[in-house]
Amino acid sequence: MGPFAWFKWEALFADLPQFFRGFGYTFLLSVAALALALVLGIIFGLLCEVQFAPFRAISRVYVEFFQNTPLLIQVFFLYNGLPLIFGLKLSVTTIGIIGVGLYHGAYITEVVRAGIGSVSRGQLEAGLSQGFTYTQVMLEIILPQAVRVMLPPLTNQAVNLIKNTSVVAIISGADIMFTAKSWSGWNQYYGPAFVAAGILYFVICFPLAKLATHLENKVHGGAVNG
């Protein structure tokens, strides 16, 4: 009676709808957290580029804080700390979205900053010399070029984000990871449970990773030069 005995798989197949619900939850959580992370990343990434030093400092503090502390602790803080300190009790889903969104927003900030930095300074000067405002130069000239550079690492960030949504299992969010944990905790069929969970993550992440490679080849294939 090994860890992967057939009857355990039969039990898993019988309860597959549970796992699909977990899959759906992970998917929605990922979409919402990614949306938040993108918004934060773009805002803080652009703040890195402005003249006004305090804005750049805020952006740096945000990035360094969230990149250099574990996501798990951040989520614990939102779950246990906020109610104790501020009496603020958020739903598990909200905590998942905010926690993962803030964490990956910091990484996306760096992606955005690097993307903008990859566009030569001459582009800014050409735009300004033609009478564009700084904002117009960003929107019409710099960002369209930066996005090409940003897309592959952004896609990688999306993959990491999806995998990291599994932290909500710790605070009982009904995602893939939690489903596997609770289902197998109840019947002890750990083998099939976690294999299935792994496959479900793989199903979302693998195509994205492939897309990232494809985009990367495209960026490096078509060398662009002004």
Binding site: S120, G122, S129, T133, G226
Partner: peptide, 20 residues
Amino acid sequence: INKVRQDIAMVFQEFNLYPH
């Protein structure tokens, strides 16, 4: 300045065309 710059064009050493 943005108004003035519309009247005073610049040609750069490195061209600085918009590659996209």
